[in-house]
Design a protein around this nucleic acid. Structure first.
Length: 554
RNA sequence: GGGCGGGUAGCUCAGUGGUAGAGCAUCUGACUUUUAAUCAGAUGGUCGAGGGUUCGAUCCCCUCCCCGCUCACCA
């Protein structure tokens, strides 16, 4: 609450090295040399293609851009107004039918039409683009990002782009000179920065321009469906720009100051920047982040289904931990797979715990400052997420209550009320248990000796005092095992011929038959937390063969 | 071929112009008469190679090697 008025803040900020600050400083330099930069509203943009759904990369880009925005606002003490535009390129033509949608025939019939003119295969929105735009907005809203949504179709139709489109027409030759050398011979022959929307077929046409009239603001082309020669204004949404030209046009028309992109777009950024200059604009400051790799260091691709989806991440960990992951080393090719999650969570918790004791400079270098827009919550957890995952695996904890029993043993006095964050983590841990631990359990049937032993155990437990402690329950376990020759261990520390030790075979049998595990918790503690009655019921089920893992079927 | 990233302990990775770090793994010990967990400690590195700058380089500069990604058709 009181974080941003720290008097030492400005001094701390001067040489803050975290990358969002470096980015913010570049942005300040840009504004200093940009005509009218001092009064400009600073505009950040992230782009989105609505032929697919938002994914973990979408999150990363918006999260990182927001971090730069916030660093900038802090560094400049709010002297500049800022906006973040999430721009949906929804006038783009539908290139191919996605695999993961219903009503594919319907889409196939609409190929090449602007995405806002393609019927929604889910039947819930005005168009396919509207559908996916809505998904994008819901996605961004879920994380509380502060942004403004822009639709390319609306921008074009509203006339917002007109002035820049006319300028593009005026510098047509220059634009062609920038793009043509980068294309192969076939594409060179047909290339145009303008893609007219056919009044005949409704398609976004990739056709050569056979004439243009700067004074009238028109281009002329041959419509491939009718064979007619058509002259059309470039304004009002009748014409869309081809990709790199489009980007440049958008930057210029909207006055974009900052936009990040993946490193696969480095060349596109360069070309679009040159076009932007030809249009009389100043290309935005940019930042190229690395792409993510999967577990084996392979590129993540949606079609291969490798890597990790954002839903998977959020099933096992918080958005903040993902945000931290995005903050860290944006220029390194990081592997993104399940195992990085617990680490990200624990690092997040560690940074969060450190934050409150830090001051000025250390605070703005602390990732949680960036993750939480300068106002991290105070939290200090008694245990780590990694430990929680171990606990849940060892404790047979199907639900949070059982897990909390184990947590409070490790962290005496901790309660869900006092530690809502830990309670949240416990929920994540239980899911992890259900998804990863439980399916791997291998229960086996008890043999005769084990049946007898477990039956005896159940009987002895029934006689145990109501509030038996873990130690007392543990003693019962030993006493039951001690009477059975298979489990006697005369070599154990402190064993005597009269009172043999109990071998680990006994406990292993318990784990195998009752928990489906090779190893397990200290069983007396387990019974105390799991409950004597529950444990007896578990034994009954085990002996009835209800737990036994069926041979793999399908 | 152009661009980018990486090469640090067995593994996964932090890191800083000034005595090399964490987690996991391994080993030892403590506590539990089992195991898991926990705690204490130990082992373990030519910081990819060579040169340069520097009093001093894992870090900065140059050259090279290896791995990976990416662009060159489309967005």
């Amino acid at each position: 609450m009181s974080s941003s008025t720290d008097p030492s803040h400005s001094a701390a900020l001067a040489d803050a090295k975290a990358w969002p600050f470096e980015e913010a400083r570049r942005l300040i330099k840009r504004l200093e040399r940009l005509p009218g930069g001092a009064e400009k509203t600073v505009i950040f943009e992230t782009g989105y293609g609505p032929s697919g759904l938002p994914h973990i990369g979408t999150f990363g880009e918006v999260a990182r851009t927001s971090m730069v925005r916030h660093a900038f606002e802090t560094l400049t003490d709010g002297r500049w107004k800022t906006r973040l535009i999430c721009f949906s390129d929804d006038m783009d033509g539908l290139r191919k039918v996605p695999d993961n949608v219903p009503n594919k025939e319907q889409l196939a019939a609409a190929l090449d039409r602007p995405l806002t003119s393609v019927p929604d295969p889910f039947g819930t929105h005005e168009s396919f683009a509207h559908h996916n735009n809505a998904r994008l907005r819901a996605f961004l809203d879920r994380f509380g990002f502060d942004y403004e949504f822009f639709s390319a179709t609306e921008c074009y139709r509203s006339g917002m782009m007109d002035a820049t489109l006319l300028k593009m027409l005026a510098v047509y030759d220059e634009v062609m000179a920038i793009i043509l050398p980068t294309l192969g011979p076939e594409r060179q022959a047909t290339y145009s920065p303008f893609l007219p929307v056919s009044p005949v077929s409704g398609k976004v046409l990739q056709v050569p321009m056979i004439a243009r009239d700067v004074a009238k603001g028109t281009v002329t082309y041959v419509d491939p469906d009718s064979g007619e020669t058509i002259e059309t204004p470039v304004t009002g949404g009748r014409v869309k720009c081809q990709w790199k030209a489009d980007w440049a046009m958008r930057w210029t028309a909207l006055g974009i100051d900052y936009e990040m992109a993946g490193k696969d777009l480095i060349d596109s950024v360069t070309l679009s920047s040159r076009i932007c200059k030809a249009l009389g604009g100043t290309p935005p400051e940019g930042f190229n982040y690395e792409l993510f790799l999967d577990e084996k260091g392979q590129k993540i691709s949606k079609s291969k289904g490798n890597g990790l989806t954002i839903d998977e991440w959020l099933r096992y960990a918080s958005p903040e931990s993902l945000s931290l992951y995005m903050f860290q080393k944006p220029k390194a090719a990081k592997r993104l797979y399940f195992d990085v999650i617990p680490r990200a969570v624990d690092e997040y918790l560690q940074f969060l715990a450190a934050y409150k004791a830090q001051e000025g400079k250390a605070r703005v270098e602390n990732p949680v400052w960036h993750v939480h827009n300068g106002a991290p919550p105070t939290a200090d957890l008694p245990i780590t997420f990694a430990l929680l995952l171990n606990l849940v695996a060892a404790s047979n904890a199907h639900d949070k209550d059982v897990l909390w029993g184990f947590i409070s043993r490790v962290a005496p006095g901790a309660t869900a009320d006092e530690h809502p964050l830990l309670d949240q983590l416990a929920g994540y841990a239980v899911r992890y248990y259900e998804d990863f631990v439980a399916p791997k359990k291998q229960f086996r049937a008890a043999d005769d000796v084990e049946r007898e032993a477990l039956t005896a155990l159940s009987e002895q437990l029934a006689k145990a005092p109501a509030n038996a402690s873990a130690e007392e329950l543990q003693a019962i376990l030993y006493d039951v095992g001690r009477k059975i020759p298979r489990y006697q261990d005369f070599a154990a520390k402190g064993a005597t011929p009269e009172k043999p030790g109990v071998s680990s075979t006994w406990f292993n049998a318990i784990y195998n038959v009752l928990l489906g595990e090779e190893k397990g918790p200290r069983f007396g503690s387990f019974i105390e937390l799991y409950g004597v009655e529950n444990t007896r019921a578990l034994i009954a089920k085990g002996l009835a063969g209800e737990l036994v893992t069926k041979p793999a079927e399908g």
